[in-house]
Each structure stands twice: as C-alpha cells, then as structure tokens.
Amino acid sequence: MKQYRDIGDPLDGADVVLVGLFSARERRYEARLDQFAALVEARGGRVVARYVQRRGASDRWKVHPGGATRMSRPFSRRTLLTHGKVLEVAEACRKADIDAAIFVNTLTHVQRTVLADILGCLVISGDDLAANGGTGHRPLKGVTASRFIPRRRGAGRQRSQRYDTQQTEVAALAKQVGEWLAQGVQPGEIAICTRFNLLLDAVYDELTGVGIPAVRVRDQPGADVDGVRLATMHAMKGLEFRCVAVVGVTAKAVPFTKEITPSEVDQAQHDSDLLRERCLLFVAATRAREALYVSWSGAPSPFLPSTR
C-alpha cells in the first residue's frame, strides 16, 4: 500500500505516464507529448508510457454544423477520456506502480479529482506543469484535488498486518490507536474505516471498552466533539486525518462479490465494477496525512500490493 505526503517537487524521482486527448485534425500531437516528456525529465521524473486517444467527427457530424467543434471536446466531463480508455490507463498505472499521470490537456477540478481516484496516483494537468517551467525546480502547486502523492520506496509511517481472527485484529487495532494517542495525536485526528458497519460496531465496542472515546462520522460530530472517528469506506471521501486505520481489508470485503457483475454476463461492466471497488480502497487509504495502518484477518484483498 502506497503512502502519501506533501512534497515540494512531486516529479522528482517519480515514474510518470503521459496521457492526451487530441482532435483527429491535430497532426503534431506526438511533438506535444515529447515536449511534456522533456519537462518531466527536467524535474527528475521518468516517463514510462504514453497513452493517446484521438477524437474525430462521425459521418453524422460531417453533414451537420459543429462537427469540427465536437472533435476538440472531451468525451466525458468527468474523465475527459472514454470509459474504456480510462480503464486501460488505470490498469497500466496499477501494474507499473505509477506515481503520477500527466494529462497534456487542461483539466477541471472535477476531472482531476475523479481521475486521481480512478488511476490511483497523482494527476497533473499539462497547464500546471508548463506554467511552472521544466528547467527549474519550483514547486508544482495545486496540481491535484488531493494534496498527497506517493512516498518513494522505503519511507516509513505505514503498516499492514494480517491476523488469524477478526477478534485479534480488532484488539490489535485498539493497541495501535493507543500508540497514536500516546504520541500526542488527538482522538479527533484519528479515523478508522471498514467496508461494513458490522465490523465498525465491533471496533466501537473494543475502543470504548478500553477507554478510548469514539464517534461515528455519520452522526456528523463537530470539531469540538472528542473521539476517534469511525466510518465506512464510502463515507471517507473528502475527509482528512493525521492517522487512518483501514481494517477488515479481506478478499471477501474488497471487492465485495455482490457488487461485481459476473464476467460471463458483461465483461466491460465486470471490469468497471472491479475498478470501482479498487478506487473505494484507494480513497480510504489516501485520507491519511501522516500514518496509515491496514489490517485484515484471513485472506487479504487482492488489491493490496503485497498480495499481487
């Protein structure tokens, strides 16, 4: 599981993919990619792959006004590219453990947010990179909806652990929370998330049983309410904490079989469902600013890097 932190130059030492959507009329798209590759390399990054999608006017558009204009428009207001192309890039990013995806196109805030969650890495708009220059080392600012990017290999403050039973897993979690509190982290700066409420109930009982205050995010506790925050993975989106524990990350929970369309019924939907499940885990894990703890009992989720 990757960790995340704030850093001055996110491309220094990073493995990067270049992604671009181009009109079928644009002939110099390869030259544009070369320019961005040079900018990445000037900042110490390494371009490991390029992904291009081109948009042309259909026969229907050719006989109606506005066809040429449509060629320059995104396929999607949320992801820029087609659904299939996004899945292709996401799978490549996962397999190659990519640190950043640079889109040569201008991206909206929504597109950056959605793409970062789907691709599982930092997403940078070409405008951000070009505006900051390629030869200097000025920080890239405001390049993604999430301010966190992967640490380089070997960095600390991350722990993953397997347990034989759920009971021992929950007990170990309470011990981990106690260690964070002893380090000076306030209860409200700690979050624990699970896939299902049933496990979250067990976590609540364990924490309160050893004297650690806990509150549920769904109850919308104010900043003045003391207690470790408890939430399902779905409820973690948009939140941020110093320390986060993601527990119950088992093969049965993530992905959850009932949420996955069988491949023999619809392969495309099956792949899309798996990607959505992977993104759910990614979002939960990236809520941590300083420390991330991941645990499971029994068979681990196939989405955990150590199990692939």
Rank of each mutant, 00 (worst) to 15 (best):
G8M: 05
A14L: 02
A14N: 06
A14P: 00
D15V: 03
D15R: 13
G20A: 05
A24S: 10
A24C: 09
R25G: 03
R28D: 12
R32T: 03
Q35G: 13
G44R: 06
G44S: 00
V48K: 08
Y51H: 06
V52D: 04
V52C: 03
R54Q: 08
R55Y: 03
V63N: 03
V63S: 14
P65S: 09
T69H: 09
T69M: 08
R70L: 13
S72Y: 06
R73I: 10
F75Q: 02
R78Y: 07
V86L: 11
V86D: 09
E91F: 11
A92P: 10
K95L: 14
K95G: 07
A100N: 04
A101W: 09
I102T: 11
V104E: 03
R112S: 02
A116I: 02
C121P: 00
L122V: 04
S125I: 11
G133H: 11
G134T: 05
T135H: 11
G136T: 00
P139W: 01
G142K: 12
A145G: 13
S146P: 09
F148L: 09
R152G: 12
A155N: 03
A155C: 05
R157V: 10
S160Y: 09
Q161E: 10
D164A: 10
Q166E: 07
A172W: 12
A172K: 07
A174V: 11
V177Q: 15
A182P: 00
V185F: 07
Q186F: 14
Q186P: 06
Q186K: 11
P187K: 06
G188P: 09
I190A: 00
C193M: 11
R195Q: 06
D201K: 15
D201L: 12
V203A: 01
T208W: 09
G209Q: 06
V215G: 05
V215K: 05
R216P: 00
R218V: 14
D219E: 05
D219W: 14
Q220E: 09
Q220T: 14
V225P: 08
D226H: 13
L230F: 01
H234Q: 00
A235Y: 01
L239D: 08
F241T: 11
R242S: 14
C243W: 01
V244M: 08
V246C: 03
G248I: 06
T250A: 06
T261I: 06
D266G: 13
D271Y: 10
L274S: 11
E277T: 12
R278M: 03
R278H: 02
L281K: 01
F282M: 12
A284K: 00
T286D: 07
T286M: 08
R287E: 07
R287H: 00
A288S: 01
R289E: 12
A291C: 04
L292K: 08
L292S: 02
G298Q: 15
A299W: 13
S301Y: 03
S301K: 07
S301C: 12
P302R: 04
F303K: 10
